[in-house]
Design a protein around this nucleic acid. Structure first.
Lengths: 351, 351
DNA sequence: TTGTAGGCGTTATCAT
DNA sequence: ATGATAACGCCTACAA
């Protein structure tokens, strides 16, 4: 069933059917009704491929996700879901491309075969070959996350540096002195994953500014690693009274390790972080944390991309989100006994 | 940049370029090399849309996922990832459509605008309007899960009924008598979600066959609900010594509730279930469970779909998986004290 | 071995 | 207000 058949049965030309459908030029009421009737009868829908070829756009956007090998985190999952949802509301389809490395067939197809009008790029690295490729191919794109040269591109990101800085200052205000940052995985850090690096930066800055005794440790994105990580920290850093983290998947393990060590949160130990609300509220006691608004971010990424597609020439717009830190129940003043000891050591630490 | 431009620069006709690219008819070596050189020089790739229009197929499959509102479970996430990965290996692109209800725009676009060669349908209901729609539109499709009229369609599914039956029998063999099934959410059950209904069926059968005292409770897909669910069960069903579950997301809560109640697994209480290995191994102690091979399922769904696309006429093929139950450490013989009491009651129970 | 030309189903520019 | 007709970029049957 195609537009020609509809035209024939309605006794008009194909262009009239096309215009009746698009409304881009007036069509007599009687004609329109006749056409509509035939369309309803045959349940006709224009072929999207043909339309894309003629219009020069596909009404489809690409969403580049990390490959399945690395299991997706909950946060990433929420991005995907919210992007797909937002796109769907804008009558856009979403083509998924799992690609992390540089030379990925599905990514290449996406950018070079003109299957899509624009791309949303997840899991961006500080140096990101895919961003470069998209730029040179002049494909409009938006990053969820940003590269080191972030002025050149359009992105939406969380201010991990600022949030971790703020979190650590909060801990310092509460009297904590020996604090740790539980970061993302060594692989991500090695790969130059932005959030991990920026979290580290914010942590180091706060530690320096407040004269703290701080240690940063990498941690895989799962509960078991979180547990091992805290166990190691407690052994290697006696007197540790608080951790900040950007690794939400590690949280259940953090909780278990502290419980196993007989440390009660927040009485004996404080925990603070950046995490999707689900994880924060599931922590016991509820986690004081900056809630990552993954839902919004997906939607905003889509509208950013739509802007970009509509006006590719304009200077790229960027959105840096710093969600407020929700004070829940996982942070408290450092326990008195420990405070003394920590203070005793502080003098000799870190110049 | 298009095929005509390549042809012009290489001094051949467009068809020669096309054939050189597809290999569907022999091209002289010198000619082929000349063409390839131009292609490399200009970094040309054929336009996918034009190709799709000419060939009558899009090299794209649709993946219908539950809408973002209902947060995706880990298992669903793994399906998505594995489908996308498998498709990518077959040089297929994947178009995502979030749609649960009946009248969904993005789903309608998928099936009626011929954007895709076939569809993989997730989260199938026993009565599923989308399956019906795909059937009438003659779009090849494969279900991850199956409808009540499962002979009519092509699907891959887990044998929840069999696995839960087997699990409960295992509990019975260990001497458990008062057992519960922690099922999926009330909404899913009300919507006729297959796995929930089939799990219930398997549970009831085992309970009947073994003369157990069984109770089935629905539970939302998250830790908090799991916790509340077990707390309620322990109150309302004293003497309960074991639960079976198909609700992996509830497991962390199950664990917490048991710990809070002072019940040690498996000494005081047994837990068994169907879950992705990640969840099973993360449980403490490691969960005796049938491991859902989500990875394989995605890959198999894709190859099933490819078969179907290649030969739409053939009778639909179905794959029912019953992964073995891995004996880990969460099940043990019923505690002696309780056994006596449970046996005492058994005589009067359930005819 | 290569070229010519028609077709895939739309949209959109001229005409009328 | 409506109809021809030429793109859009590729594939492929037919011809040479």
């Amino acid at each position: 069933m195609n537009i020609g058949e509809i035209a024939r049965r309605a006794g008009v030309s194909r262009s009239t059917v096309s215009y009746a459908l698009s409304g881009k030029r007036p069509v007599a009421d009687t004609t329109r009704r006749r056409i509509q009737q035939v369309i309803d009868e045959l349940d006709y829908r224009p072929n999207a491929t043909a339309r894309a070829l003629a219009e020069g756009r596909t009404r489809t956007i690409g969403l580049v996700i990390p490959p399945a090998g690395n299991r997706l985190t909950h946060m990433q999952l929420e991005f995907v879901a919210s992007v797909v949802d937002a796109a769907s509301r804008a009558d856009l389809d979403v083509l998924l491309s799992p690609s992390g490395g540089d030379h990925d067939r599905s990514f290449e197809r996406l950018v070079s075969e003109r299957r899509i009008d624009g791309v949303i790029l997840m899991e961006i690295r500080l140096e990101d070959a895919r961003a470069v490729r998209l730029q040179q191919a002049r494909v409009p794109f938006v990053g969820i996350g940003r590269t080191a040269r972030d002025r050149d591109m359009c992105w939406i990101d969380i201010d991990y540096a600022g949030l971790i800085h703020h979190s650590v200052c909060h801990l310092a205000d509460l009297g904590h002195h020996r604090v740790a940052l539980v970061n993302r995985s060594p692989e991500l850090i090695a790969a130059g994953y932005g959030p991990a690096h920026r979290a580290r930066q914010g942590f180091l800055n706060a530690v320096r500014e407040r004269g703290l005794d701080g240690v940063e440790v990498p941690c895989e994105d799962d509960a078991r690693s979180g547990q091992e990580c805290i166990e190691r920290l407690l052994r290697s850093h006696p007197g540790l009274t608080a951790v900040a983290t950007v690794n939400e998947a590690a949280l259940p393990g953090v909780q278990r390790a502290l419980a196993d060590a007989g440390l009660k949160v927040p009485r004996d130990f404080s925990v603070i972080g950046v995490a999707a609300r689900l994880w924060a509220e599931d922590f016991r006691p509820p986690l004081t944390a900056a809630d990552v608004p993954a839902q919004d971010m997906g939607a905003q990424a889509v509208s950013l991309l739509l802007e970009r597609i509509a006006a590719p020439g304009t200077p790229p717009r960027q959105i840096l989100l710093a969600p407020p830190i929700s004070l829940r129940s996982s942070t408290a003043a450092v326990p008195a006994g420990r405070l003394a000891r920590a203070d005793g050591r502080a003098a000799g630490d870190r110049g």
